[in-house]
């Protein structure tokens, strides 16, 4: 009886994760597309050196950070995927969303300060601990770079 209850609990959590997680993800992706479009005039590069002829007025550090949660369905799907091997699509989209969100926040900061170029962009990612061992609860991403105001 108790086993059945636990099983039912897990199945319903997976279903809730699937439905709610999908909805949250779709909304986030739509939102990201709009914001990325609005910030397209800010260029980024991860070069260490700039072309020498670029006249720069001001240079300063800009950063973007975000922590995104894993949903229950993703945890479940990745467990299955671990049995069969192959690409973990559920985690790939989670990482992608976190990186794009952090990038958007950094670009917004640069844009608000009047910079049009962010140079030497670097990403830093860390895994957040979840409830269960070896299962990530989510990811955190920091992206940073040097914003340039050109003359």
């Amino acid at each position: 009886m108790e086993g059945l209850f636990v099983l039912g609990m897990s199945v319903s959590l997976v279903v809730v994760g699937l439905i709610a997680g999908r909805a949250v993800e779709a909304k986030h992706l739509r939102d990201l597309a709009i914001r990325e479009q609005a910030l397209r005039h800010v260029a980024t590069c991860n070069l260490r050196r700039l072309p020498a002829n670029l006249a720069v007025q001001e240079a300063f550090l800009v950063t973007g950070t975000v922590a995104v949660a894993n949903d229950y369905f993703k945890t479940f799907a990745s467990g299955l995927r671990n049995l069969f091997g192959g690409e973990m699509r559920s985690y790939r989209s989670l990482m992608e969303r976190a990186r794009r969100e952090a990038m958007c926040r950094m670009l917004a900061q640069a844009d608000a300060a009047g910079a049009r170029i962010v140079w030497n962009v670097r990403y830093e990612t860390a895994c957040l601990h979840g409830q269960e061992r070896n299962k990530p609860g989510g990811v955190e991403v920091i992206v940073y770079g040097t914003a340039l105001k050109t003359a």
Binding site: L13, V16, G17, A20, G21, V24, E25, H28, T63, T65, V66, A67, V68, A69, N70, D71, Y72, K74, T75, L94, E101, L128, G130, Q131, G137, G138, E140, I142
Partner: peptide, 23 residues
Amino acid sequence: GASLKNIVGGELKGYTELLVESR
């Protein structure tokens, strides 16, 4: 709050805030 968020997914606002403060 964050562990509840783990069921449905989405941004962990508390942890983002934590990151911003830490930075």
